[in-house]
Design a protein around this nucleic acid. Sequence first.
DNA 1: CGCCCCCGCCTGTGATCACAAATAGGCATG
DNA 2: CATGCCTATTTGTGATCACAGGCGGGGGCG
Lengths: 190, 190
Amino acid sequence: MHGEVAPGQAMTLRGIGKEFEVSMTPAREAVRRLVAEGALFLSSSGRVSTPELTGDRIEELAALRALLEVELASRALPRAHMALIDRLQAINGNVTQAVESRDAVAYIRSNLEFHRTLYLRAQAPAMLAMAETVWLQLGPTMRALYGRFRKSEPPHFHRLMIAALKAGDEPGLRLAVRSDVTQGLRMLAG
Amino acid sequence: MHGEVAPGQAMTLRGIGKEFEVSMTPAREAVRRLVAEGALFLSSSGRVSTPELTGDRIEELAALRALLEVELASRALPRAHMALIDRLQAINGNVTQAVESRDAVAYIRSNLEFHRTLYLRAQAPAMLAMAETVWLQLGPTMRALYGRFRKSEPPHFHRLMIAALKAGDEPGLRLAVRSDVTQGLRMLAG
DNA sequence: CGCCCCCGCCTGTGATCACAAATAGGCATG
DNA sequence: CATGCCTATTTGTGATCACAGGCGGGGGCG
């Protein structure tokens, strides 16, 4: 999810087991779960690797992010008090810092933490779980994306989200979330 | 997914293995996958059962269905030719038949087939997979629902969907899908 | 008669093994 | 020197086993 492993990276059950000092059985179960969530790709011969997403698939996952996260943000809005907004601003500081230090993994991690912190207020666990499933599928690809475009973009849309939260502006929040989610992924898909 | 098993139904790995004439290992992997998708509930002690959904959770899953399926239908609309509409009408005949014969499982199965047939045209596999994950989570509960309300409702909103498809009416299609998806689940959640 | 505790069976977990398929590397050949 | 084949090794699959924890039933106690 955090982009620590590159797209197309292959792995073996015995290798995973050795890495985490367990036998094949727990490694197999973990892998099967991640395959079920779409986070890992299972070849026809049973080999497992991180997925290499096509442009179409990236576009589709971006659309899913937009659908789900706009709804989550909208549901979180009426419950967002000042303490939450303060926390979001603090996390956003970490995002900026990660951007400045060109740390792709730290950027992805803090960016997702920003979103998750907001969405937790939506009180919609199934919806949040689906959003996280999408993040999981996009993880390796996002790493490749932010590794390619090294330009340091400040989290502009995050500030718009915070402003909309403060103002209680629901249409503005929806637009800001949709823009933030779509922004980075549109360029890779094209 | 088809409501063949009731909510809260417990099952054991050895029992599943015996039922399908395999050992515990494949049964375990299948169960873990279904747990990852939210179709089965894993207790803290490792026991597995079908989930008993709360009203809030049902409402949330209905909202997810509305979000995802409206988008899928909208994407399928420009690709829906007459041959597809004919197939949808044929499937809808099976739905009506299942309603008349009070067969809950056949009703759920043909109803989902109706939706899936349309959504396949959307060319959005990840989105369809998420919709099916929601169906999976709702399966046992839907069975309980349609077992409780035995009134034979003709598939009114299906006909609205077909009419909107024929007319190329996108707003009408979105509304019809949202209504169809929300209709049955609203009463159980309340 | 009701409640609680304790024991035994059931269940999930993780490890290991035998097996079959697939992969990759080396060898011979054109 | 490139290419195709063949074998040795790697890899996933499914079965079985030892073990620990939990759940339920039965007996004893108040």
